[in-house]
C-alpha cells in the first residue's frame, strides 16, 4: 500500500474499498425461505393459540377451586366437587401400563428389523409396523374390549394370585375363591393399557429403528471383525449409539399414551379413587373424562373440563419437549437433525 502511494504520487491516492457483491441468494430462494418460515411460524402460532385458549378458559376454574382442583379426587358437578387428582393418577397408570408393554415389544421389534431380519422381508416388516399406526383408535378399543379383555382377566387373576404381595398387583377381592370374581379384574387400567400399548408401539418402534439403522458401519464392522456375534455387536455398538433414540421414542410414546381417549372410554369403567392398582376394575383418564362428560356439561362444568384438558396439554408438552431435548443431545440424535 505504502509502496503504491509513494510511486504514484502524481495521481490521486488509491483508496481501497470493499467491492459490492451481488445478492447472496436469488429472489426465488428468498421467496422459498419466506414461505417456509411463514408456515413454520404458523405451526407455532396454532400451538400457542391452543395453549392460550385453554389457559384463559381455565382461569375461572382455578379461581373457584384453587389448589383443591389438583388435590380433590372426585368429579361430582352436581355437588360442586371437582378435582383431577384421581383422574391424573389414572391417566399415568394407563400410560405406564401401556409403556411397560410397548417398550420391550418396540425395542425388540426395532432391533429385529434393523439388525436381524433378512433384507427381503425388512421393508415388508417396516410397512406392517407402520400399518399398525394406521389402525383407528376405535378399532384398537374394540379389539381390547372384545378380544383382549376376556384373556387379560385371566392374566390379571394369575398376577394377583402369584404376585399379589406386591402392592401394584393387588386387587380388592379374594383370588383363591372357588368362583373368583371375574368382574373385579375387568375394565381396568391394565386392559386399557394393553390397547393403548398397541397404539404407541408403532411410533416407538419407528423412532428406534431409524436411529439403530444409523449406527456407524465402521463400528459395526469393528465389533464383528473382533469375533463378536451379531447380538454382541448390537449390544456394544447399536444400543449405546441408539440410547437417545430409545429414550426419546419412549417418551414420545408416553406423550401419546397420556392423551389416548377413545380406547380408554370404551374399555374403562369410570372410578375416581386414589389408588395405584392397575389390575383392579375401574379407573379414569383425563381425556376419557372429557369425552365422557362433554355432552351433558353446563357452561361451568365445561370450563372445568377444559381446565383438565389444559393440565394434560401442559404435561404432554413438557414430556415431548424433554424427549426432543434428549434425542437431539445424544450422539444418535445429532445425526437425525
Amino acid at each position: 500500500m505504502t509502496v503504491l502511494l509513494d510511486s504514484d504520487e502524481s495521481t490521486s491516492p488509491v483508496v481501497e474499498q470493499p467491492r459490492t457483491l451481488g445478492p447472496a441468494s436469488p429472489t426465488s430462494d428468498k421467496v422459498f425461505h419466506g414461505v417456509t418460515l411463514a408456515i413454520g411460524i404458523t405451526v407455532l402460532v396454532i400451538m400457542g393459540a391452543i395453549g392460550v385458549f385453554l389457559g384463559l378458559q381455565s382461569i375461572p376454574t382455578f379461581q373457584r377451586y384453587g389448589w383443591g382442583f389438583f388435590t380433590e379426587s372426585q368429579w361430582q358437578p352436581e355437588k360442586d366437587i371437582l378435582g383431577i387428582s384421581a383422574v391424573l393418577l389414572g391417566t399415568f397408570t394407563i400410560a405406564l401400563v401401556a409403556l411397560a408393554i410397548a417398550f420391550p415389544l418396540a425395542l425388540s421389534t426395532a432391533i429385529f428389523i434393523s439388525e436381524f431380519a433378512p433384507t427381503r422381508i425388512r421393508s415388508f416388516l417396516v410397512s406392517m409396523v407402520d400399518l399398525m399406526a394406521a389402525v383407528p383408535s376405535i378399532i384398537w378399543g374394540l379389539w381390547g374390549f372384545f378380544l383382549i379383555q376376556p384373556k387379560a382377566i385371566h392374566i390379571a387373576h394369575w398376577l394377583h394370585t402369584h404376585l399379589g404381595f406386591i402392592p401394584i398387583f393387588q386387587v380388592d377381592t379374594d383370588p383363591d375363591a372357588a368362583i373368583w370374581a371375574q368382574s373385579r379384574y375387568a375394565a381396568s387400567a391394565f386392559v386399557a393399557g394393553i390397547a393403548v400399548a398397541m397404539m404407541v408401539l408403532p411410533m416407538a418402534a419407528a423412532v428406534m429403528r431409524q436411529i439403530f439403522s444409523q449406527a456407524p458401519a465402521g463400528e459395526r464392522e469393528a465389533a464383528l471383525a473382533l469375533g463378536s456375534t451379531r447380538w454382541g455387536m448390537v449390544r456394544t455398538v447399536v444400543l449405546p449409539f441408539g440410547r437417545g433414540g430409545i429414550i426419546g421414542g419412549t417418551m414420545l410414546s408416553l406423550g401419546r399414551a397420556l392423551g389416548e381417549t377413545i380406547a380408554v372410554v370404551l374399555i374403562i369403567s369410570p372410578a375416581f379413587d386414589i389408588k395405584f392398582r392397575p389390575l383392579e376394575v375401574g379407573s379414569e383418564s383425563v381425556s376419557a373424562l372429557i369425552a365422557g362428560r362433554f355432552g351433558e356439561a353446563t357452561s361451568n362444568q365445561l370450563k372445568a373440563l377444559l381446565t383438565a384438558g389444559f393440565v394434560l396439554f401442559v404435561i404432554t408438552l413438557i414430556i415431548n419437549t424433554l424427549a426432543a431435548m434428549i434425542v437431539s443431545r445424544s450422539r444418535s440424535g445429532a445425526l437425525t437433525d
Binding site: P216, E221, A222, L224, A225, L226, T236, V237, P240, F241
Partner: peptide, 19 residues
Amino acid sequence: TETRKRIGMVFQKPNPFPA
C-alpha cells in the same frame, strides 16, 4: 466368530468404540 477372532482386521478409517 471363531474365524474372525483368529483373523483380525484393521480398517481404513480408525473406528474405536467412542463410548
